[in-house]
């Protein structure tokens, strides 16, 4: 109870502080440069001043937060990647040469590439298929809600859920993991799935696909509904069958959305960390960059140089998507 009250107290201080800033700063501006009940010329001058200052009052906190938490760290990570584990002494490209000669890095890089190829493709494809099919049946919305649901589950929660499915009992004990139970039912040998090198990657990816398919489905379903009925009717009159209509009329019209879904999931995959941490912590050849980076942040008291180098690699992988995003947004703004 005491904990609850102090939590409430701390929360209200945080939220109120933020609200007071916005209200107070604007009030102060209006008091310093009044724009009411003054001679017209004074008002005109004050208005010019407030119109110059006020945008910065509005955008200032966001700008500071973004600057300190996102922009400054990009440059600081770059700087740290040239320093040693304590972040004090310059060691040139040592961290980079360490990275490129470390087998652990190549393992995580290889795994990351595997994740990048499999997860976005599978999630987008499944999402598209499910979106198309659920649009045609009366209980489609219920089905969509259920498939969308894993989106709400944390990676760590999902990991527990799936670890339970992959659970393995040796010997003749009854299997309580669903996957092994099915294997045994069909006469197979139970396996400790997450310890089988290479293939275990796919068992981890299944978790993320399970979570992300719903996201892809919801967005693609909306895009499919946005396709004009008339183009489909025209295709029917032109004699196209269902499959032809899907691939030659519908899919081309939603390419843009497919690309957005695909890149969004790609970004997420690059940052994936919780699942690997919880399932294997990188053992049995399942390491990925994000987890490796986290590992180096704290391993043996932390090595900021090596951690930073791995972060930079992740950033470099993201940059093409970032450029593409900005271009797309700019084109959109000009279109307005």
């Amino acid at each position: 109870m005491g904990q609850l009250i102090s939590a409430l107290f701390v929360m209200s201080i945080g939220v109120l502080g933020c609200a007071i800033y916005f209200y107070g700063s604007n009030l102060l501006l209006d008091i310093c440069f009044p724009t009411k009940n003054r001679p017209h010329l004074v008002i005109a001058k004050n208005l010019r001043i407030t119109n110059t200052i006020r945008p910065w009052l509005f955008i200032g906190p966001a700008l500071l937060a973004l600057g300190f938490y996102l922009i400054f760290p990009v440059f600081d990570s770059l700087r740290l990647s040239f320093l040693d584990r304590t972040g004090e002494n310059f060691i040139g490209f040592d961290n980079y040469s360490w990275l490129f000669s470390s087998s652990e890095f190549f393992e995580s890089f290889k795994n990351n590439m595997l994740w990048l190829i499999v997860v976005p493709t599978a999630a987008t494809f499944l999402g598209l298929v499910i979106a198309t099919m659920t649009d045609r049946i009366w209980w489609g919305n219920i089905a969509k809600s259920l498939i969308f649901m894993p989106m709400a589950i944390s990676f760590i929660g999902a990991s527990v859920i799936w670890k339970f499915i992959y659970d393995f009992r040796s010997g003749d004990d009854a299997q309580i993991g669903l996957l092994n139970a099915i294997v045994v039912f069909f006469g197979g040998e139970p396996q400790a799935w997450i310890t089988i090198p290479f293939w275990n990657n796919f068992f981890l990816m299944a978790i993320l696909i399970w979570i992300q398919t719903g996201f892809a489905m919801v967005i693609l379903s909306a895009a499919l509904r946005g396709i004009s009925e008339e183009t489909i009717e025209a295709a029917v009159l032109d004699g196209a069958n269902g499959v032809q209509i899907f691939f030659r009329i519908m899919v081309p019209q939603i390419w843009g959305t497919i690309a957005v879904v695909w890149t969004t999931i790609t970004i997420l995959v690059l940052k994936v960390f919780d699942i690997v941490l919880a399932m294997t912590n990188g053992q049995w050849n399942t390491q990925v960059l994000a987890n490796q980076m986290f590992d180096w942040m704290f391993r043996g008291g932390g090595d900021s140089g090596r951690g930073a180098v791995i972060a930079i690699i992740i950033m470099v992988l993201v940059i093409p998507i970032m450029v593409w995003n900005i271009r797309r947004a700019n084109a959109e703004m000009e279109g307005r």
Binding site: T35, H40, L41, I43, A44, L47, R48
Partner: peptide, 8 residues
């Protein structure tokens, strides 16, 4: 009234 805001 070139510089006067609309409301005034």
């Amino acid at each position: 009234v070139n510089d006067i805001p609309p409301a005034l």
